[in-house]
């Protein structure tokens, strides 16, 4: 059963215990980013280390190349740090 809870729901209406009833994906945390990881597909070997290290699960492999989901990448730079072939560069957001 799907139950809709309005944006302005009062305290009687929202679920108790701070249960997340709205998916966190509704909040595009990519807005927080001040550095953007850019993948150099020429260099990328598709080893997927960046995928495993990404704390936000924002990197996937598409056609064996790292692909960043900029909606959720917060720009922490761990991927660039961990990439064994230096295929990811952090560039300042404008």
């Amino acid at each position: 059963m799907s139950i809709k809870i309005s944006e302005m729901a009062g305290w009687r209406e929202i679920p108790v215990a701070g249960v997340a009833y709205r998916p966190s994906t509704e909040s595009k945390t990519g807005d927080w980013r001040s550095f953007r990881p850019i993948v150099n597909e020429e260099k990328c070997t598709g080893c997927a280390l960046c995928h495993f290290f990404c704390p936000d699960g924002a990197i996937s492999l598409v056609n064996e190349k790292a692909k960043v989901d900029y909606d959720f990448c917060k720009g922490c730079g761990i991927c660039a740090e961990e990439c064994p072939v230096k295929a990811i560069e952090m560039v300042p957001e404008r």
């Binding site: 809870i5 679920p15 108790v16 249960v19």
Partner: peptide, 28 residues
């Protein structure tokens, strides 16, 4: 267990269960 509205607005018991994922006390 009381019932709450969890992920994707589905009504589930207030208990952690891999079949019915629930996030408790995460962010408000």
């Amino acid at each position: 267990y009381i019932r709450v509205v969890g992920h994707e607005y589905k009504e589930v018991p207030l208990v952690l269960d891999p079949e019915n994922p629930l996030t408790l006390g995460a962010f408000g």
